[in-house]
Design a protein around this nucleic acid. Structure first.
Lengths: 115, 115
DNA sequence: TCCCGAAGTCTAGAATGTAGATATGATACA
DNA sequence: TGTATCATATCTACATTCTAGACTTCGGGA
């Protein structure tokens, strides 16, 4: 994307993933975040897509991850829990506000703005 | 994006551009759409970015374009007016509904869902 | 004719999105 | 002990989307 030096832009999936991480209040890790997304979105997200996006969001400083030991049960591999940073919250809020502003007073079926 | 055979996915900018075209009710062309976007969005969109996106949206059947002769004034090159198709309206509406659904009952500052 | 202005096009490359295979560890249980 | 199994994360290779800015086009003005 050219000289995207400001790491403030959020892609479509990045927005959704950030939303999910926020939604789970710091208690989400890869698999549960994936489940949340696939339950709420109109499409299916693959593990590869999710983890790549999580990495990018962390690079941008939008989320933070902490490793924790696995539970004493099958498949007890350590989990990477994700939490939204203050910066991430702000970015997500900005997207949400923009979206609200765009649709304010606009009839979606017609596309005309009421006075 | 792998086998994205369903041309139903809309990227971040595609959503915004589609919104702008809908907003202008069929009377928008490149330059005016660009102005609309740059006035309403939190960022600046370049001509190249816009026209590429318009082409993609047309390929996907989300918008339709008609060429019209230029005005009798300086720079009177012909314009390509853009209008949203029924399919485009549906797609945009779907995105909007998803967005509304995601945030329903959720406090953006905290990320928790109220019962 | 030469200049100017509006509109659209092109190019090369970076960022984002993707599926599916594979790796990693840990428990279960024979 | 060794092997099956399960949950989780990572890797690979590529497709799609996004981008800036230079460039072309074509008509009017002087």
């Amino acid at each position: 994307m050219g000289a995207m030096t400001e790491h403030t832009y959020l892609g479509e999936l990045e927005q959704r993933v950030l939303w999910a991480v926020l939604r789970m209040g710091g208690d989400g890790y890869g698999t549960t975040i994936l489940e949340e997304l696939n339950a709420r979105l109109d499409r299916v997200v693959s593990p590869g897509a999710l983890y790549a996006t999580l990495d990018r969001l962390e690079q941008k400083g939008m989320i933070r991850s902490r490793l924790e030991d696995g539970d004493p049960k099958r498949g007890g591999r350590r989990k990477r829990y994700m939490a939204v940073t203050a910066e991430g919250r702000t970015a997500l809020e900005r997207v949400r506000e923009e979206w609200k502003r765009l649709w304010a007073g606009m009839d979606p079926a017609v596309g005309a703005h009421e006075p």
